[in-house]
Structures are given as structure tokens and as C-alpha cells.
Design a protein around this nucleic acid. Structure first.
Lengths: 111, 111
DNA sequence: CCGAATCCAATATGATACTG
DNA sequence: CAGTATCATATTGGATTCGG
């Protein structure tokens, strides 16, 4: 049975593609918060421990550039900004869920 | 239906635990190479494009510190060093596989 | 072959203050 | 509220050399 025909070098490339998109400490935590329904800058900052506005701002731009997040300006008074997850962003959930699972297990082991 | 009882903050913590272990561009590519059976320093370096000895050396130490890799010294002439995966390291494969899958899809989309 | 040592550049992250 | 600007530090990555 050949369940895996990919060459190692291909796997490494694919993986590095993924890593390039989710790089750093913050992008996945941001996505998790957004998966949970949070969509405003201020709320995200409150929800993610220790993240600064500077970092949050930059990371949201990166996520936008990778089509995972959409920045929507609502023409209210004053204007409110909503960060929306794209359909595409949800393709990441299987990987994210596995990482959460592993982190949970790893935490237990080291406590 | 409540299929997910974890609080968001827990999820974020778990995820950050995982991210802290696999951080950087190189640890997962190294693990993939090792999953494929490569166990010598020189072979790893040849197998992973663009990695330098300095980085490879550091990353292997990090992986060792996290119990994912074991450094075995064989008392031959001259001594040969073998890097072995621990049983524990294989608990990461579900997450890694999902990340590879995603990277493959993402590559297709952007080509 | 298996790295360690050194030096340096680039990037990521953090703290704080400030603006429309 | 939603950021930007500035400064400082930490971490990562890369190039090269050298030793056992």
C-alpha cells in the first residue's frame, strides 16, 4: 500500500509554505479568537494575552495579505472596523485543531 | 450541540505551547527529514535546502531539549553521531500532516 | 564527518506614547 | 475605537572559519 507518494523535499516545501503563512507567535492565536466570533480590533487585543497594538496591527495586515482575513469598514458614526474571516481561512482549522490538541497533551506531560 | 467546551483562552494557551516547541522555519522540516529515516547531521543538512550548520546544530539541540530527538553517540572510529526520533516525537505527526496538506493546497491556489 | 565559534544582518517582539 | 510612530531589545538566520 502506498499511502504517501510525496517526496520528502516536496513535503518540506509544502510545510514551509504553511509555516510562512502562520509564522510567529500570534497569527494562530488571532485566528482562534476570530473563529470564536471576535471581530473588532479592541476585542481581539483584550482577548489575546500580552499582544500589543503594534503587533496586532501588523499581524492582521499579514493575515489580510494572505487572504485569511478581510478588513471591512462600516460607514457608521464613528466608523467601525470589522475583521472578518474568509471562507479560505477555515481550511486551516484541521491543522489548527491538531496543534491545539497536541499543545494540550504536551502541557499535561510537562506539568 | 456543544462539541467544544474549551475556553478560547485555553485554546490559545495550548496553541502557544505547541508553537513554542515547533517555532521557527526549521524544526518541522528537520522532523520530516527524520521521519523519512535520515539520522545523520550531514545527511540532514544535505536534505534540507538552505539550512546552515549553525542553525541545524541549534535546532537539533532545541528538539533534544523538548524530548523529540535523542542524540546517540556511537563509539566507532571515528565516532558517529545518530539523531533518533523519540516515540514522543511521533505524537506530532497528525498536526504535521495537516500542515503539509494545507501547504500543498495553498501552493496550488497561488501558482 | 560533526559540529562549535565568531561575527553580522535581518526580523520579531515589546514598551510607550500619541493621533483622528 | 483603531490604529501609527518611535525606540529598544531579543531572537533568528546566514557566512565563514576552525577543531577533533
Amino acid at each position: 500500500m502506498k499511502q504517501d507518494v510525496s517526496k520528502i523535499s516536496d513535503k518540506i516545501r509544502y510545510l514551509q509554505t504553511t509555516l510562512a503563512v502562520i509564522n510567529g507567535k500570534w497569527k494562530l492565536p488571532i485566528l482562534i479568537s476570530m473563529y470564536s466570533g471576535i471581530s473588532r480590533f479592541r476585542d481581539l487585543q483584550r482577548n489575546i494575552p500580552n499582544i500589543t497594538t503594534r503587533v496586532l496591527s501588523k499581524e492582521l495586515k499579514d493575515l489580510e495579505a494572505n487572504k485569511l482575513v478581510l478588513r471591512v469598514v462600516h460607514d457608521t458614526h464613528p466608523v467601525s472596523i470589522e475583521y472578518k474571516l474568509t471562507t479560505y481561512s477555515f481550511t486551516l482549522t484541521p491543522a489548527v485543531d491538531e496543534m491545539i490538541k497536541w499543545g494540550k497533551q504536551h502541557s499535561k506531560g510537562t506539568l
